[in-house]
Amino acid sequence: MFISLVLIGVGWTVERIWQETQSQVPPWVLLVADNLAGQLRTQSLPQAKLSSALEATLLPASSILWSEAELAALKAGQVVPLFTTDQVFFYAMQQGELWQLGPADLTESTVPSYWFSLLFLGLLAVAVWLWLWPVARDIQMLRQQLSNPNGVAAVPVRSFIAPIALSFEQMRQQIQRLLGLQREMTQAVSHELRTPLARLSFALELSALPTDEKQLMLNDVKELEQLVDEMLDYARLESTQPQLKLQQVDLSELLQNLVEKLSPLPGAAIELQAGPCCVYVCDGHYLERAVQNLLVNAKRFARDKVRLKLDSTQNAVEITVEDDGPGIALEQRAEILKPFVRLDPSRQKGFGGFGLGLAIVCRVLEWHQASIEVGESSLGGASFRIKLPLA
């Protein structure tokens, strides 16, 4: 309705302006008419020598139907102009005789027609902007509010997007309730599971079962405890984004310390290829956690060698973890990054893990606006490449 009314109003306004412009008598016509009237007061047609050099023609007095105002002007000695499409004629009356002077060519309008089209489009653009600007302002306000975890999605009541903002606010509150329930559930589950697992472990230590059988049962209990810890860790990282402690971190030093930390663990040796210094602004704790998960997986599946590389390009800092293990099939590279996904169909205990390590890596990289690519290693196994943007 607004756009329709604007189109009607702007179109009518521009048309009226155009009509007024076209109906106006050019100023020079009035000047010529006044000049002719002054000359004819002292001269008689057809012998008059007019400075305008217009041809004089005698017409029958009744050849033109004059209005009362025009007829009164003629009788008063004035010169009356009449227009055709591109010419103007001047009429004067002397001693009851009607004289036609001219014609004189009309010059083109001083206002080209395309200016009226530009005026129409300009007024329409202003009207649409006045309509859309509050909507764009409210959308920007809503975007800023939604980007703030503690913000409230609220816009003026008369806003065009007020119903949308209300729906967003209801959805945000529902998501917060669900996240709160998730945190409460994970805490409750952890508390309820840790206690019976501790009792079970203690009872197994005191039981008189054979040593081999007891050790297998203790390993199962330990695996359950690790599963609970990793689920709680993933739920904590997934529920919300923490306040990152961004600071300048020497990635070369961070990776060197990480290699020394993981060297005592069983598995293939880690070869580090990094320059002397590479400073990057990030949260060193979480970034170290992400690279550590990749290295632990690589040591677990590699045969003899794991390679950790640090490269710096024009737009990003790249951290690559490669191994000489069995690798990852092309159709499985996207699935492996999802939580609780393990590629070994047998789920053998020798492989370890619960399918949450890479999901935690993706979460940490998302906080740093980074990305990870899964590919084929030059060593023959899998390759995981982290790209940390420099912007």
Rank of each mutant, 00 (worst) to 15 (best):
D311G: 11
A290T: 09
L272V: 03
E322K: 03
I328D: 03
V306L: 07
V321S: 04
D283Y: 04
R289E: 12
I270Q: 06
L295R: 04
L265G: 06
D311L: 12
N297I: 02
P266C: 02
A329E: 11
Y286L: 13
C278G: 03
C278D: 10
N297P: 08
I270Y: 01
D283E: 06
G327E: 04
A334Q: 15
V281W: 06
D304A: 00
K305G: 01
N293K: 03
A269K: 12
E318G: 08
G267A: 05
I319R: 06
R289A: 10
K309T: 15
K305L: 10
Q314G: 02
L310P: 14
V291R: 09
E288L: 01
K309F: 07
K338W: 00
D323Q: 07
D311M: 13
S263K: 15
C277I: 14
P339L: 00
K305H: 05
G327V: 01
P276M: 09
V321W: 03
L294H: 14
P339F: 02
L295F: 03
L265W: 05
L287R: 07
E318W: 10
V317Q: 08
D324N: 10
T320K: 08
L272W: 08
D283V: 03
E288Q: 13
A268P: 08
C277K: 15
V279L: 13
P264D: 01
K338S: 05
E271I: 07
P326S: 11
